[in-house]
Design a protein around this nucleic acid. Structure first.
Length: 835
RNA sequence: GCCGGUGUGGUGGAAUAGGUAGACACAGGGGACUUAAAAUCCCCCGGCAGCGAUGCUGUACCGGUUCGAGUCCGGUCACCGGCACCA
């Protein structure tokens, strides 16, 4: 009998569609498990081979949990607002809603093709008014609680298209579309006060099971630092404040730097003798993004303010002041004190501008580089009353002094900035606010939600930088909900992050038209037990959704402080690089590739992209090898957390493995019992596969299954042996497992589909071989192996090792200095020549 | 630049807590079956030396800790992800 994957997969797809074995039911006696993957953005290109990696992994986890008796929620949805769809719509003159609908249909077909055990009755779509009604509702609660406010923020402005651009649309300072220069322009924007939650977003990380690099990256992104704001008098009679975490180095200040956007500069206009030069610098800085400023960090630029100096409150000395774009307006106070001896950026700047570098902490060589260590290795010098103290003691001492003198105050700072929540775009949730000349910003009544995104004739960008909605005068002009007077609607829309900040709650109760989620459903399913997603979402989506969830907790909508109990992350799937130098043999060809593609030619694997022609379409793989092979391959390809390279050749190995599983049915003995020969390997494999799935080591789980199959071929199998294989295989390759379950007669015997059956349980006693091979080392080097009973004591192992012929030979004329036995592993003899 | 990560055969990757490096695969080589090919089944497969037993060497590079380091520590290099309006 041949393994006809396409017939088998079509058969089971249809059965699952009809009988809905994966529909989740809220409530019941079983323990619950909520497994979540980041919902996809339904792009026109369809599912990418990158998607199946996390999806298959979570599907395996959920299928195993079901088999272990859990009530599982394994939902899917679509994060469908966003730029690519909008740009596609503009280009092709099709409404984004139509494109979105088509794309979702295509994604749905592909996801069903891959046999995921999603609950298809709980699909959410962020662009559905019944969904975004609640996104808008949450925004209104944020507004009512003072967490949404308007402020002026710089935006990217294309001088030719006359529109606001996303950072992504700005490439090397010019507009991606037209190539015209992009400048920074101030624009009034809605902001969300995520910084008010900064402490809780850091502190509550202690209570969740996130992989460590996710926690670290979030902590660093929030960037909490405790320091001091120090007030300096200026030589023009006013004051400025700087923020520093190194108040101990105050005696080492030799200059100060102000950000080009700082309002103080304008106040000093008349005192600055070289204003023309300063103004030109401000203008040049406005063309760079924060990122570009940082990138050019090595070559620092700046202009000295001629006429304004600041007075060091500790030493009483006046030092020069510069304007430079390495100081960002958005962090601290927008002015920094320069301590070149003990901060590398300051050192670079001082070196370039020939400023004095004073050593105030001993321990480094400040003629070569800044000495930045903050531990006990440094002793204060050249620092007045601090001399002789360690840095650790100097910080509180100087803090105390500054507080007494009244020119310093303690301050906790965060790198985290508030969330820019406005987009001057069409394809997003309308912001449900009305601007009334009398009453200011007024929320629309909740009974009027959803505020539906109106149909527009043109969703093209406007040339005044406003959202396309601003052209809809009928829609824009409205009455103030408060006073009834003429008023205008907000025409900005929300960012795509909005809909994805709470979707996991909607899955719990997707059809509720009274609340965003019922208390009953939320208390039953919440929190998400396991959330897997990409590392690239760690600092934005993951943080934003934690923020919203904490807010919803504060207003009593949800019962847990954190949305996700556990977070793991997967690596990207890369494609083969068609321009890789390893693909050609002659040096001339290699040189040609390097000349043409530069460093790009040195990488065997790169991100898949249409232009490189290395995109793999899951449809093709499924057609050639089947969905089960696709699932097995994408799990077997490598460590789930690391990047992996797609290989068409290697897919065959996964297909071959499934063929080998299938073909075992031809030779299986009738007995329904586990055979004696295979007992140990079966129990070992059950243990390994069970643990590996829990640890997200799907590649080694499959390797263990392959090893078991290899042993089955060597030993022969019974129907009972096959039963265990089918059950272990079913989360990975559900279609073939179901079919084999039916053919081998277990479906008829048990009356159950495989995935509703019990997950195999191992007997620890049966997972160990009776004998074990241990290593015998001499001076730490492997010289022989000996086989000993598995439960051997140290003495028995040493005895056996000494009994080995080769070891005896090597020990001749030597003296044993030391013997190191490691139970079950090895014996190491340390020898020296005998006297 | 800043933050987070990675580096192991021809290739993808294994190696719980420092304890036999290369599991499991792909590619390659050999054999069986076959008129033949495909498929399938079995064997070999880091490098150097050797007919062989075996010896030496080997986890990006330099150094350290240890009886013992792919794993821990210090430094260097290369690459990948993120950097707030891409999702």
């Amino acid at each position: 009998m041949k393994y006809d994957f396409s017939a088998i997969e079509a058969k089971w797809r249809e059965r699952w569609e009809k009988s809905k074995p994966y529909a989740a039911v809220t409530g019941g006696d079983k323990p619950k498990f909520y497994g979540l993957i980041e919902f996809p953005y339904p792009s026109a290109a369809g599912l990418h081979v990158g998607h199946p990696r996390p999806f298959t992994a979570m599907d395996i986890i959920c299928r195993k949990k079901r088999m272990q008796g859990y009530n599982v929620l394994n939902p899917i949805g679509f994060d469908a607002f966003g730029l690519p769809t909008e740009n596609f719509a503009i280009k092709n003159h099709i409404h984004p809603a139509i494109i979105t609908k088509q794309n979702i249909e295509n994604f749905t077909r592909q996801l069903k093709m891959l046999g995921y055990s999603f609950d298809w009755d709980r699909v959410v779509d962020t662009t559905d008014p019944n969904y975004y009604k609640w996104t808008q509702w949450i925004f209104l609660q944020l507004f009512k609680n003072g967490l949404a406010y308007k402020t002026t923020m710089p935006v990217n402005w294309c001088t030719s298209c006359k529109c606001v651009l996303a950072n992504e649309e700005v490439v090397e300072g010019v507009c991606e579309r037209c190539g015209a220069p992009v400048v920074r322009r101030e624009k009034s924007q809605w902001m969300l006060g995520i910084t008010k939650y900064a402490d809780r977003l850091i502190d509550d990380l202690d209570d969740v099971d996130f992989i460590e690099r996710v926690k670290t990256q979030q902590r660093n992104w929030i960037g909490r630092s405790t320091g001091m704001e120090v007030t300096f008098r200026t030589t023009v009679g006013d004051e400025v404040t700087v923020y520093t975490t190194r108040v101990d180095t105050l005696f080492g200040v030799t200059y100060a730097v102000i950000s080009p956007e700082h309002p103080k500069l304008l106040e000093w206009k008349n005192s600055i003798k070289n204003w023309g030069e300063v103004e030109a610098y401000k203008e040049a800085a406005s063309r760079k993004s924060d990122f570009e400023r940082g990138e050019l960090n090595k070559d620092k630029t700046g202009v000295r303010l001629d006429g304004v100096e600041i007075i060091n409150p500790a030493s009483g000395e006046a030092v020069p002041m510069f304007v430079s774009d390495y100081v960002l307006m958005g962090y601290g106070t927008g002015i920094v004190m320069g301590v070149p001896g003990h901060d590398q950026r300051d050192w670079d700047f001082a070196t370039k501008f020939g400023l004095p570098i004073i050593e105030v902490v001993k321990g480094g060589d400040i003629t070569k580089e800044a000495f930045t260590l903050k531990d006990d290795t440094g002793i204060m010098v050249n620092s007045g009353f601090l001399n002789g103290m360690t840095v650790k003691d100097a910080i509180p001492a100087m803090t105390q002094y500054a507080l007494e003198q009244g020119w310093g105050r303690e301050k906790v700072n965060f790198k985290l900035r508030d969330w820019v929540f406005s987009r001057q775009r069409y394809w997003g949730e309308p912001i449900p606010l009305v601007n009334c000349p009398e009453c200011g910003w007024v929320p629309i009544p909740e009974s009027e939600l959803p505020l539906v995104l109106p149909q527009v004739d043109s969703y093209e960008l406007t040339d005044d930088g406003e959202s396309p909605l601003s052209k809809m005068t009928d829609w824009v002009n409205t009455k103030c909900p408060k006073c009834g007077g003429d008023a205008k609607r907000e025409t900005d829309t929300m960012p795509q992050w909005a809909g994805s900040s709470w979707y996991f709650l909607r899955y719990m109760d997707p059809h509720n038209d009274k609340e965003l989620v019922s208390r009953e459903a939320e208390e039953y399913w919440g929190p998400v037990d396991w959330y897997n997603g990409g590392m690239e979402h760690t600092t934005l989506h993951l943080l934003y959704s934690r923020f919203w969830h904490k807010f919803l907790y504060d207003i009593g909508v949800v019962h847990t402080k954190e949305p996700y109990a556990k977070r793991t992350s997967h690596g990207m799937i890369l494609g083969q690089n068609p321009h890789y130098v390893g693909n050609v043999s002659t040096q001339a060809e290699k040189d040609a590739l390097i000349a043409k593609y530069g460093n790009q030619a040195l990488r065997p694997a790169v991100k898949m992209s249409k232009s490189l022609g290395n995109v793999v379409n899951p449809d093709d793989v499924v057609k050639t090898y089947g969905a089960d092979t696709m699932r097995v391959y994408i799990m077997f390809v490598g460590d789930f957390e690391k990047v992996a390279v797609w290989s068409d050749d290697a897919v065959k190995g996964s297909k071959r493995f499934l063929d080998r599983c299938w073909n075992l049915m031809d030779s299986a003995e009738e007995s329904g019992e586990i055979s004696r020969k295979n007992e140990v390997i079966i129990h070992k494999t059950i243990k390994k596969v069970t643990q590996d799935i829990d640890d997200l080591k799907l590649n080694t789980a499959l390797a263990a299954l392959m090893a078991m199959v290899n042993e089955f071929y060597a030993n022969g199998v019974t129907r009972g042996d096959l039963k265990e294989l089918i059950l272990l295989l079913s989360p990975f390759a559900p279609h073939i497992a179901e079919e084999m379950w039916e053919i081998t007669g277990f479906a008829a015997e048990t009356g159950k589909m495989a995935m509703q059956n019990d997950w195999p349980v191992y007997d620890e006693a049966k997972t160990v071989d009776s004998e074990k091979e241990i290593a015998v080392q001499i001076n730490g080097k492997l010289k022989a192996t000996v086989t000993v009973p598995a439960d051997s004591t140290d003495d028995m192992m040493i005895e056996a090792a000494k009994g080995n012929e080769k070891i005896q030979r090597l020990m001749e004329g030597m003296e044993i200095v030391r013997t190191i036995p490691v139970r079950g592993k090895l014996v190491n003899f340390i020898l020296k020549p005998a006297k």
